[in-house]
């Protein structure tokens, strides 16, 4: 082991941070690039299901809030692309990998948002699950990723609250609204729980990531934390749990849940969810439609910033 590798191991051991120019194992770098670019793509693709409701938001206030939330998600995507760029991959390469289907994004965004209550369920459950994961990632061993997570978590704090506010308005509204709230909860509950990824015993990637302290807490641990936290929020809304087996377990000190439908999860991950094609096509279309803007910006910069020294 040379002195660089020893220095790397010591930083990990002492829970200090690895910085971009430090020596790191190639596998550590590859793992981070894959994880961070997937995280970035999720933030960006995640704007689509919410953008679907921007022009149909029921009030000016709700439209302003939703717009601000979506703008934050764009920012999160950019922070994360920056983090990945410190590891030696360009943003352009990452976008290309997304378009070629080589890079993934969170499969939750391949579900459609059918009613306004879905905007509530997305903010409350999807952002809620993401926040649980991101709070934990603030302690990740890669410095730029950790700093990005701190910034993102600060901004996320309003996302879940605005979602829950919509859920309250719907659940305490007319019987039809309450029904929409229940339906949104039913559709998003299990996909949101599966956002945490496969069970620990089935997750080969994660155990190496935990040794390197890229991940701090395991998938199952974080998922259980989220479930335990969310139950009373469902109760407050007066909605029924989407899971008939969700019961407090005195022995474990946690809520039990039904087995998850991992076949559905993997089916969506592998491209066969309700909106996979639509999400990717839209991203490609916008990227290509905006090509002239990038070309114009490059031509303008060339004209105005050429040095006359």
């Amino acid at each position: 082991m040379d002195k660089f590798e020893a220095a790397f191991n010591e930083l990990i051991e002492k829970e200090l941070k690895i910085e971009p120019r430090d020596w790191m194992p190639e596998k550590y770098r590859e793992h981070l690039i894959r994880q961070v670019s997937q995280h970035a793509h999720s933030e960006v693709i995640g704007m689509q299901p919410e953008g679907n409701w921007l022009l149909r938001a029921p009030s000016l206030r709700s439209k302003q809030v939703l717009l601000a939330k979506i703008q934050d998600e764009a920012g999160h995507g950019l922070y994360l692309y920056s983090v990945a760029e410190t590891l030696g991959i360009s943003r352009q390469e990452m976008v290309q990998q997304l378009h070629e289907g080589k890079a993934k994004y969170s499969s939750i965004f391949n579900y459609p948002t059918l009613t306004w209550a879905d905007m509530g369920a997305v903010g409350w459950l999807v952002d809620g699950a993401a926040i649980t994961n991101q709070v934990s990632l603030q302690r990740t061993s890669y410095g730029p990723y950790s700093r990005g997570m701190v910034r993102i978590c600060k901004e996320e704090s309003f996302h879940q609250r605005q979602g829950y506010e919509i859920m309250m308005q719907m659940a305490f509204g007319t019987p039809e609204q309450k029904e929409m709230a229940q339906d949104a909860l039913n559709r998003f509950w299990f996909p949101a729980l599966m956002m945490f990824g496969p069970h620990d015993k089935d997750s080969a990637h994660s155990s190496q990531a935990m040794k390197w302290k890229i991940k701090i807490e395991s998938n199952d641990h974080l998922r259980q934390k989220f479930i335990d936290h969310t139950v009373k929020q469902i109760e407050y809304l007066g909605l029924k749990s989407p899971d008939p087996n969700m019961k407090w377990n005195e022995a474990t000190g946690h809520y039990d849940h039904s087995p998850f439908n991992w076949d559905e999860f993997w089916n969506v991950v592998n491209g066969n969810g309700p909106c996979n094609q639509e999400r990717l096509d839209h991203h490609k279309k916008v990227h290509n439609d905006n090509k002239w803007v990038r070309e114009a910006a490059a031509a303008y910069a060339l004209k105005t910033e050429t040095q006359v020294a």
Binding site: L78, Y79, S82, R91, G148, R151, A301
Partner: peptide, 11 residues
């Protein structure tokens, strides 16, 4: 704070 993309100083 981090980094950003841009084609020129103003952008």
């Amino acid at each position: 704070a981090g980094s950003v993309h841009g084609y020129d100083k103003k952008m």
